[in-house]
């Protein structure tokens, strides 16, 4: 009895021992830095980076009252919504296409992974060159094909520049969604479609009654991960515009970087980073809860 109890106790501890290295790594590299940022957000930090005493919510108040705060928050909203939303839609459509039998399907799948597998800084730099007014390849291709008569300034206003940033964001995010959905699609039993066809179901019926409900878990994972990745994405905006002009194309992450290392407003930058963390937790939390509730109801 006693022996059996010991064995049971040992078995209960076993998973935790196996998990210990991961828990330690996560604590050192994730939880500990987060706690430091929390502490810094309530501390006075000099321009030279020297950490002073506790200042309460002063850094938060300063951050919220920064002139660019509102613009940056609106930009961040549109950035996350457009990149996550459109890349999910496009990724889903591409996954449906790639799930069909056709010649060169393997090649098409391989090509799709390129934008995702390449470094974001390189992607953004390449797009910078493509849309460059003076010697951009987009202009030279269109001019050579005779589609346009003179070069177009593809970055003529900050609104358009922001749209380009979102477009590049979508371009690099689509493959991830497509592959997530594709894995979901491949696990759907073909017989379900066959029965549906026998029952007279059309394309849309199959899509909404079979495909969508069954790939929902894959879509949920890709959407939650994308919300986090896209919100935290730094390279595209920083490489393409550095938030110029006057923070009008900044998202929260690039803005807090500029605030910290260019403007040297370190306290508000730390406060902003905590605000971002909380927003992200709330968004991801709401989404997860909604999706999980729906899945439970299924």
């Amino acid at each position: 009895m006693n022996k059996a109890g010991n064995k049971k106790g040992k078995r209960n501890w076993e998973p935790y021992i196996w998990l210990l290295p991961s828990i330690l790594l996560i604590s050192i590299f994730v939880i500990f830095p987060i706690l430091i940022v929390f502490r810094l957000s309530f501390s006075e930090i000099s321009k030279a980076g020297v950490i002073g005493g506790f200042v309460g919510f002063k850094n938060y108040s300063d951050a919220i009252h920064l002139p660019a705060f509102k613009t940056v928050m609106i930009n961040t909203f549109w950035w996350v919504l457009s990149v996550v939303g459109l890349s999910t839609l496009l990724g889903f459509i591409i996954a449906l296409v790639l799930n069909q039998e056709f010649h060169g399907r393997k090649i098409a799948r391989s090509i799709l992974i390129f934008p995702w597998a390449t470094s974001l800084v390189i992607q953004a730099s390449v797009w910078n060159y493509i849309i460059k007014y003076e010697y951009g390849s987009l202009n030279s291709v269109l001019l050579n094909l005779g589609i346009i008569k003179e070069a177009i300034n593809w970055r003529s206003s900050y609104q358009i520049e922001f749209v380009w940033e979102c477009a590049v964001g979508i371009f690099v995010t689509v493959p991830f969604v497509a592959f997530c959905v594709l894995s979901g699609l491949q696990s759907i039993d073909e017989s379900l479609y066959e029965s549906a066809i026998v029952d007279g179901a059309g394309f849309w019926d199959k899509l909404f009654s079979i495909t969508l409900p069954l790939v929902r878990p894959a879509l949920s994972v890709s959407t939650v991960l994308n919300i986090i990745y896209v919100f935290n994405s730094f390279p595209i905006v920083y490489t393409m515009t550095k938030g110029a002009p006057a923070n009008k194309t900044d998202t929260m992450i690039t803005y807090l970087y500029m605030l910290n290392f260019y403007d040297r407003k370190k306290g508000p930058a730390n406060a902003l980073s905590v605000i971002g963390f909380v927003i992200l937790c709330i968004c991801a939390g709401i989404y997860m809860m909604t999706v999980m509730r729906k899945e439970e109801n299924l």
Binding site: Y133, N153, R155, S156, Y158, E161, M240, T241, K242, A244, P245, A246
Partner: peptide, 8 residues
């Protein structure tokens, strides 16, 4: 008279 995008 100048380059078109002085902000970037």
């Amino acid at each position: 008279f100048t380059n078109p995008n002085p902000a970037t």
